[in-house]
Design a binder for these strands. Structure first.
Length: 426
RNA sequence: GGAGGGGUGGCCGAGCGGACGAAGGCGCGGCGCUGGAAACGCCGUGUGCCCGUUUUACGGGCACCGAGGGUUCGAAUCCCUCCCCCUCCGCCA
């Protein structure tokens, strides 16, 4: 949620920065500006009337206790109240409208974010590792996985439809190994491991920005009014919602493994094969809650912490900075990690690390008290560390051998009882 | 799922129709006492919004006692609905 005071004070500048994401949001902003002005006028009237009512009510009570009931005063009070009720309804309506628009306006891009329309305008920051050279035609991970007997898309579909997979044997074990490997790495760097609920209330999703705008992307349990989390960012970032933290407690570093559930509405036909885009996938998430002045430094460190996973697994990747048009709803600045995928012959997203500044904190009333006693909104950051399914896919493809077998990355072997290679089933 | 009890400030806890943003205690901060500290004494200590000014301060106002609605001139206090927590019973990984 954007800061109303900022909108009031620096209207033109906010408008300009928001328009970098796309012109459609500027209309919403104009609406907010107008409604806010109206709201404050009505609010002033309401509060003045209320003050009058309070004063006169006390007066009436005082008289009554003295045995002097004043019928005229009573009538006057009733009139004030009627007036007040009308204005209050108006105020409530304005507030609802204002909130409606405010909740649907995305975060402002940080001034350092490259201006651009979409993916093609993202900027590569650095590369690590070399894409492997094969002396044979590399196979896509879904073919490898099926030949190895560790991925079963057919049975996934039998159980749950398209975009679901069953992982068996070493496939299942690899998932478990990857999760443990990632969590161990992050906790060794000071992230606290958390296990969170996978079903959350609507206001939690409003807090991180998935609602109200992206309802159709979520799985919902209608009867209980709960949603399946699309990422662990949601419960992790909301952990301290509506709290006022002590400045000394910050920064907070959290990591959690959860499955993630996404309806993938509007992605029909895209990445229909393989582990790239599923309705249910596993992810280890990193979340930071920081002081305002620290968040950009913390973002750089967060990206490095996510990169470390790929480095340890010796998977080639690059870091790109998202342009204004490609930024997610809540993010002010985002770096994507893209891993090399031989079957696509290009880099594909495996992690997304964002600084949301105070955008989410404002929505969830997450604050901290400074040493001089001021309450400020925290800055929240999140990043994948990493998407487990895509990591598995990247390992299968990058470590494949001519005979269809796959070498296990060294860092992972201790988590698999020392197994060094997966061989195709006869 | 059934029966009962309860949600008040950072925490504990009183208040059960007006002087209550809320006693008292703990905690925290400041000052005093002290060589220093403990103990003690005094003072202060919630959040959000709106308005004004000499605009990182001060003054004024409004709201908030789980949430929403109602009764009343007036609600933390009475009534209704919902949510959450606790205890017991049932069921259960």
């Amino acid at each position: 949620m954007l800061d109303l005071k900022l909108i009031r004070k620096n209207y033109e500048e906010v408008r300009k920065r928001l328009s970098l994401r796309g012109e459609e949001y500027v209309k919403l902003l104009d609406e907010v500006y107008k409604l806010d002005k109206q709201k404050r006028e009505i609010q002033k009237e309401v509060e003045n009337l209320r003050a009058l009512l309070n004063r006169k009510s006390k007066e009436y009570g005082r008289l009554k206790r003295e045995g002097k009931e004043d019928e005229n005063l009573k009538k006057e009070l009733t009139e004030i109240k009627e007036n007040l009720q009308k204005l209050e309804e108006e105020l409530k309506l304005l507030e609802e409208k204002l909130n409606y628009y405010l909740l649907r306006i995305p975060n402002l891009p940080h001034p350092s974010v490259p201006v651009g329309e979409d993916e093609k305008d993202n900027v590569e920051v650095r590369r690590w590792g070399e894409p492997p050279k094969f002396g044979f035609e590399p196979k896509p991970h879904w073919e490898l996985g099926e030949k190895l007997g560790i991925l079963d898309f057919e049975r996934g579909a039998k159980l749950s439809g398209s975009r679901f997979v069953v992982k068996k044997g070493l496939g299942a074990r690899l998932v478990r190994a990857l999760i443990n490997f990632m969590l161990d790495l992050h906790t060794s760097k000071g992230y606290e491991e958390v296990y969170v609920p996978h079903l959350v209330k609507p206001e939690i999703l409003i807090g991180t920005g998935q609602l109200p705008k992206f309802e159709e992307d979520l799985f919902k349990c209608e009867r209980d009014n709960l949603y399946l989390i699309p990422t662990a960012e949601v419960p992790l970032t909301n952990l301290h919602r509506e709290e006022i933290l002590k400045e000394e407690e910050l920064p907070l570093y959290y990591t959690a493994y959860t499955p993630c559930y996404r309806r993938e509405a509007g992605s029909y036909g895209r990445d229909i094969k393989g582990l790239i885009r599923l309705h249910q996938f596993d992810k280890v998430e990193l979340v930071k809650i920081t002081r305002q002045e620290d968040s950009y430094e913390e973002l750089e460190k967060l990206v490095k912490d996510a990169e470390k996973v790929l480095q340890e697994l010796e998977l080639p990747y690059r870091v790109v900075e998202l342009c204004t048009g490609d930024l997610g709803f809540s993010a002010a600045k985002t770096y994507d990690l893209e891993v090399w995928m031989p079957s696509y012959n290009r880099y594909r997203e495996i992690s997304s690390c964002s600084n949301c500044e105070d955008f989410q904190a404002r929505r969830m009333k997450l604050r901290y008290k400074t040493k001089d006693g001021k309450n400020l909104y925290c800055h929240t950051l999140n990043g994948s560390g990493l998407a487990v399914g895509r990591t598995l896919a990247a390992i299968l493809e990058n470590y494949q051998q001519g005979d269809g077998s796959v070498i296990i990355p060294k860092a992972l072997r201790p988590y698999l009882g020392g197994i060094e290679v997966i061989k195709p089933q006869k």
